[in-house]
Computed example of a mutant assay.
Amino acid sequence: MRVTVLGAGSSAGTPVIGCQCAVCHSDNPKNKRSRCSSLITMDDGTNILIDTSPDFKMQAMRESIDKIDAVLYTHHHADHCHGMDDLRAYCQKYKKAIPIFANQNTMSELKLKFQYAIREETKFWETPVLHAQIVNQLFNIGSHEVIPLPVIHGRMEILGYRIGRFAYITDVSEIPDSTLELLQGIDTLMLDCLRFEPHFSHYGFKQSLAMAEKINPKRTFLIHMTHDIEYDAVSDSLPEHVFLAYDGLKLQINN
C-alpha cells in the first residue's frame, strides 16, 4: 500500500498567522505544514482517509485524490474534522455514502457538529452523506483489516489506527501497554511530535523519540508538528530510522 501525508502540521499549521519566526518565513517547502491528515491507498485502489483537516480541499486537489472510500477519525478536535464538508464532492460524484469510523465519544461529538452530514442518503446530494460506524475492535474496510489503537490525548481516549505493518498515532500523551502490544511487528509508524517543550496532551520531541525507540519499527515519521520544528536542523539531529514527515511525503509499505 501507499501512504501519502496530506498534512504534517499542528492545529495552527505552519506558517502561523501573524508569526515572524524563521520557520514561518522559511523558503523550504518542507516547513510549510497544513493541518494533520493522511491518505492510505491500498493495492486494490481503496482510498482510506485519516481525518479531514480544515485544509482537506487544498490537500485533495494538490494530490489529485479522485475518490474516498472510507474515513478513519482519530478524534473530534477542529484541526482533525473541520474539513468534513468537503467530502460532499465525492458523495456527489459517485452518488454514494462514505462510511466514517470512530470511537463512541468521537462519533457523538461529530454528530453534534455535523448532524446535517451524518445521515441516510436521499435523492439529493447537496451535502455529504456519511454513515457512522462506531469501532472498538478489529474491523474491515472491504477486504482490509483495520485495528483501532486506543491512546490518551490529555484526559480523553482517542484512536490511532493500524493497517498491516503501518500504524498512525497523532495527538497522544500516553500509549497504554495494551496498545503497545497491538503495535508489535510494525514496519512504519507515524507519531505525534508537537514541539520541543512538553505539552499536557501531546508528546514533545524527547517523548516521541523515546517512544519510537520503545516500539522499534523499521522507520518512524514524526507528524503534527508546530513551527517550533525547523525541518533541516531537526532532521540532522534525528537518530537513524527516525524522520520528519512533510506535506506530500509518499511512502510505499509492503504488507
Rank of each mutant, 00 (worst) to 15 (best):
P15D: 07
Y94S: 10
N105Y: 14
D228M: 06
V146M: 10
I253A: 05
N31L: 07
S53L: 08
M225T: 05
L130V: 10
Q20L: 12
H25W: 00
L87W: 03
S53I: 08
D79H: 14
D177N: 12
P99N: 12
I134P: 06
Q20N: 14
L194I: 07
S11L: 14
Y73I: 06
K30A: 12
H224N: 11
S37A: 15
H75V: 05
A102N: 06
Y231S: 03
Q252H: 13
D228W: 02
K113R: 10
R119K: 15
I152E: 06
D69T: 04
K96D: 04
L149S: 03
E121Q: 14
K57C: 04
L6F: 03
Y168K: 02
T226E: 02
H82K: 14
M190I: 13
P148Q: 11
L191G: 03
F205W: 06
L244E: 03
A212N: 02
V172G: 07
V242Y: 02
A60R: 03
G154N: 07
V242L: 08
T188C: 06
I152P: 06
K214A: 10
K206A: 14
E174I: 11
R119A: 09
D247C: 09
C91H: 01
Y203S: 02
I223A: 09
I152M: 14
T122H: 05
K93M: 10
E63N: 08
S34F: 12
L72D: 02
I186L: 10
L110P: 00
A102Y: 02
V129K: 10
Y231F: 13
H199S: 11
T46G: 00
K218W: 01
